[in-house]
Amino acid sequence: MRLDLALIADMIAPSSRVLDIGCGDGGLIEHLSRTRGCDARGIELDMAEVTRAIAHGLPVMHGDADHDLAQYPDAAFDYVVLSRTLQAVERPREVLRQMLRIGTRALVSFPNFGHWQVRLQLLRTGRMPMTATWNRPWFETPNIHPCTLLDFRALCADEHYVVERWLAIDEAGRRSPWRRSLWLANVFGEQALFLLRKA
């Protein structure tokens, strides 16, 4: 399993009800249901991944964050997970609202557009940055809503979400050392992970 998914799994209490949006081949839900006794389900847009996940015995449905969350009843899950996908959805704020309507807690990870390499490249070359994380040219990137850690925190404040935990993560998914200062994490963290609940 990807290292950042392991970090997410560590934040989920055993025997919880979990929805993983953009679950890929279902690595996280498999881990949660087979080792943590969770009722874990997934939503995935890529049909080949959906087929692979179901064929592996995992409950996954074809769908996407923008259109399929509205169907679920309130508080249907203890945790709703959205990893490395927020920047690619059509309406990130609405997706977060839905996540915290259908789930008690939301776990959101996203690539940090405030990383120093991104800043430096834009400043130095005047072109859209291309890094290990932001590695697709502007005209074909699916990442239509990039944000920084500070941007995300500001949105959470606007929406009155409580940030229960946050972590900066490097590209490989390891936890990075910027634990105390969000400002430093915003410069040096390649990815961010937030655990939210409604106030």
Partner: peptide
Amino acid sequence: ARALNRAAANVSFV
């Protein structure tokens, strides 16, 4: 599938 989601049922859909 969406009706099953509204009912919070366990559903796979492909």
